[in-house]
């Protein structure tokens, strides 16, 4: 049973939710509305007048080679970030799960990396891999490898993926660990007695029983890769080289604020808005039917 607090009048509850409503209105509804509105116009180069184009901006975008390329880049980027961060996190969680049943110390220590701010993490990676003074670049040079993510598109992608995924691992790790610890130990023991060795147990017991956690993380990580990696990309590659790391969010910024093409930029934000709404719907639908097995 849910416990609800009930109020007599309307005024107090209204007052209580007002701050949240104001914040949402000012920082979400207003800009979102403006974006939708602006996406239907093309402003003149000096921003003095706007010309109605209907869905022209969308039409143009969807047939635009660079925009489509950015879609592909985003897909590659999010798949890589999601699979790397979740894969590494799951691996670490499985290892930790064997150790820390009953001991809270490890868990506390393992949470710490999550406290590293994403911006700090981005700068950290940028310095490590700096083409001139980076530590890792220097060691790679000793090994005979010439690292240059400023010129090499693959290396640039690799670096932003690594930096983005790294910041995400401890978050995923925590959820995976909690998920693993929620699996009754006796079920795993029963499987062991039934003849399943570690890998079989993982495949037939642990992984299916972990699927609610995995699904949740999948959605959350895709959303993260789509929207929250802006800082990492901005600090490390600025979308380059040659747009190789320009994911959709970055392109909104690049076209709108750098290229000053507000109509196109707004249309792009609207497309992103639709995408994130879809992901949210998927997630809520799923949470409704949480018990999965």
């Amino acid at each position: 049973m849910e416990k609800r607090v009930s109020f007599k009048g309307v005024l107090l509850p209204l007052l209580l939710v007002l701050p949240q409503l104001v914040v949402t209105a000012v920082f979400f509804f207003y800009p979102a509305g403006q974006a939708i509105w602006q996406s239907l116009f093309i402003p003149d180069p000096f921003g003095l007048s706007m010309q109605w184009v209907g869905l022209g901006n969308f039409d143009y975008l969807l047939s635009n080679r660079y925009y489509r390329a950015s879609f592909a880049t985003t897909a590659v980027f999010s798949i890589l970030v999601t699979s790397v961060s979740m894969g590494v996190a799951l691996f670490l969680a499985v290892l930790a799960d064997r150790l820390i049943r009953g001991s809270g110390v490890y868990r506390t220590l393992l949470i710490w990396p999550y406290a590293v701010a994403p911006a700090v993490a981005g700068v950290l990676w940028m310095f490590m891999f700096n083409t001139r003074v980076g530590v890792v670049t220097w060691y790679l040079g000793l090994l005979g490898y010439d690292w240059n993510h400023v010129l090499n598109e693959g290396e640039a992608m690799g670096l932003v993926v690594a930096a983005s995924a790294w910041g995400r691992i401890s978050y995923n790790f925590l959820f995976f660990l909690a998920g693993l610890q929620a699996i009754p130990r006796s079920v795993i023991e029963a499987a062991a007695i039934d003849g399943a060795r570690f890998w079989t147990r993982f495949r037939t017991m642990v992984f299916p029983l972990l699927s609610p956690t995995t699904f949740f993380l999948l959605v959350v990580n895709i959303v993260y890769a789509f929207f929250e990696t802006f800082g990492v990309i901005h600090t490390i590659t600025s979308g380059g080289p040659q747009q190789a790391t320009t994911i959709l969010v970055y392109k909104v910024y690049a076209d709108g604020f750098v290229g000053q093409d507000l109509g196109s930029s707004s249309a792009q934000s609207v497309i992103l808005l639709v995408l994130v709404s879809l992901l949210t719907v998927v997630q809520f639908r799923f949470i409704e039917r949480r018990v999965h097995y």
Binding site: P184, S186, V187, E189, A190, A191, M205, P208, L209, H292, Y293
Partner: peptide, 8 residues
Amino acid sequence: QNYALYPH
């Protein structure tokens, strides 16, 4: 004691 059946 808790049967430890495979829930899925």
